[in-house]
Design a protein around this nucleic acid. Sequence first.
RNA 1: GCCGCGGUGGCGGAAUUGGCAGACGCGCUGGACUUAGGAUCCAGUCCUGAAUAGGGGUGCGAGUUCAAAUCUCGCCCGCGGCACCA
Length: 804
Amino acid sequence: MYPFKEIEQKWQKYWEENKTFKAIDFSEKPKYYVLDMFPYPSGAGLHVGHPEGYIASDIMARYKRKQGFNVLHPMGWDAFGLPAENYALQTGTHPKITTEKNIATFRRQIKSFGFSYDWEREINTTDPKYYKWTQWIFQQLYKMGLAYQAEVAVNWCPALKTVLANEEVIDGKSERGGHPVIRMPMRQWMLKITAYADRLLKDLDLVDFPDSIKEMQRNWIGRSEGADVDFTIFDSDYTLKVFTTRPDTLFGATYMVVAPEHPILKTLIPSEYKEAVQAYQMVSASKSELDRTELAKEKTGVFTGIYAINPVNGHKIPIWTSDYVLMSYGTGAIMAVPGHDQRDWEFARKFGLEIIEVISGGDITKEAYVGDGVLVNSQFLDGLHVADSQRKIIDWLTEKGIGQSKVQYKLRDWVFSRQRYWGEPFPLYFDDNNNIHLIDESKLPLVLPPLEKYEPSGTGESPLANLPEWIDFIDPETGKHCRYETNTMPQWAGSCWYYLRYLDPDNDKAFCDKQKENYWMPVDLYIGGAEHAVLHLLYARFWHKVLYDLGFVATTEPFMKLINQGMILGEDGEKMSKSRGNVINPDEVIGNFGADTFRIYEMFMGPLTRVKPWSTSSIDGVFRFLNRVWNIFVTDEGKTSPDIQDVTPDSSTLSLLHKTIFKVTDDIENLRFNTAISQMMIFVNEIIKLPVKPRSVMQTFVHLLNPFAPHLTEQIWNLLGNSQSLAYIDWPTYDPDLIIDELVTLAVQINGKVRGTFEIARDSTDQDCIENAMQLENVKRYIENLTIVKTVVIKNKIVSIVVK
RNA sequence: GCCGCGGUGGCGGAAUUGGCAGACGCGCUGGACUUAGGAUCCAGUCCUGAAUAGGGGUGCGAGUUCAAAUCUCGCCCGCGGCACCA
């Protein structure tokens, strides 16, 4: 067993003392920015899923350095968030203390892997020197008109007297205690991400993200084209605007539906309908999002007593209210076309509303017909197909001034405040008239004050509301009473721009020096979990575009290439969890096998992006591999093996080496670490058979293994008499002539079945190949007394003979 | 329901401009060395078969082709995301 513990400590100390991985701002070399999604330092410590992405990025970082790139590879902590605050609630420990402790654990664990981070660039989102700039960016958003306040429904738990995050609500009950949770409107800060919807969608074409992530983002943004149409209310001046993707079906609109929250229900309801409508509104309000969607298979609703006029045919149509129409999408009202929309069809069926066919081709007595067809019962649209009639009706509506084409997004503005303590304070204050004043830039950061108690305020406000001595103050300039915002920013805030802070972590004049930003950005490779596929990535892309519009950054997109590592499951194939008892502790694995074995094992498990189960016995195989490598180079006494000699390698050894250089290089470039490792195993299996191992070949191999097993290879490199670290010594190149075999093995197929193989010189003529094939005894057996119909030769691969 | 990804030995996985399926690793079997081995080394290991003969075989069923894990069509199953978005 090789002395991994000693070696790993030695080299980690060496790298740290020599600042081996310090990234230099500005250089003649091309830059390469490889970024990990920084972790939330939880109390549980690192689990084996974390390092998977970090190992991959570290291999890239080390490989690129050896390729002559100036590499930026940083790490930091996304440390605001709920768990620390909940822990404070239970124990009274300040979140800052908990956070510091957790970071220390994470840092120690991460360092034990020997990652080549530039630790001088370490950042922490909870550090006032960091969140000063989170606050500053918020102020820029505010000045751009992208931050505003609104009343938004939140998860209010009357029993706990607090607002809960979505993940704290399970089936309409609080996660802690199981108390009922209702939707209650509360003042919130909002960010107008919808203003960037189109660009967030379009610029996905500029980046190299997995298709699934792009698709999820596209769905999330949810662009749809259609038209706005105004309906007048019968006997009223009021118009009811709807959005529809199917203006062509306007003649089939036989009723309308508004969301239970729609303002029209406050004013226009005839008195005899008020009671029923209000009762329905109450029921809807108490339903969670879940109830309103998944569980509500059966449509519900009530008639409001109001009628609208269908603008195309003047028909008087009833307006209903139902929670299958959402206030948050479109205008909160729809024209219902039961003949050609399945939801409307179900609703109409249930309540006996009229169903008219306006597009032929289906059977609307059975279900709504949503396909293409010829328009019927639609006066001037009759005879047209769907696409044509859409154009025509939109022109008609536009001309009459009662509608126009419209692009609608599913994406909603971002609720950017939390009623919590452990987050960035908003850098602003209110005067007694509720006017908003931004804190002067020179006075930032607005520091989170210490708290005695973390109990919720009881009003739904953050625990900061319990601190009047902090909230209330007299503005020295105006002498007037003012108060700070008690809401804090969500956890996403700090992670929206952290990749920029790494470029210039100590700058107190700007969030990041512009020259440095110009040099390092964009991120060339971003590795992290797919759970951040939508929110974090969309939010960060949004902030980046705002900073771009303000001229603070030079690229429209922050991340050029994104890779999601697949989850690592427990040995039982289930998700790792304490309750299942299948959690693997990385400290233990490193203690038993060392960091190099851990690194290679996680990369050898399978493709980086795939979900794969942990297997403790498989680690043995990797550990054996590294031991074999060690034993090739080092004797039991710790000296260089006498088998390694300055001899000229024979051609097959040289060919093997160059094939290995080629394969490992190509695989790293494409993040196929599993097959790169496999090739190195093949190399070792072959080389170990040689009684004398050529020094030049073995030295080259050490380079190839270095990004994967940095400690072991540094030690061997050192023992071989090299005094410099391997980190910046050139990556080997292969000779294309040496990876081509002189002799190739061809298979012979007769009627599609392989009947033999033969060796022949590379690139032999088809004629030679066929002649050789015919010589084989087994081939002769199968073609005897039969006529050859056809022969196919694929160069250097196969000879295929068809007989009859 | 919709969108995306996937299904290959006992297990993790290789091989997709169509060209000898199962590389590499685990596990297992046998052997060597040993007081001992859960260390190390050697041999074997898709199924069937005495076989270095044949036959079968990449979720299922068709198709295209000299040739299909790979391409086409229709299903089944698993995972992830979204979920009344008008």
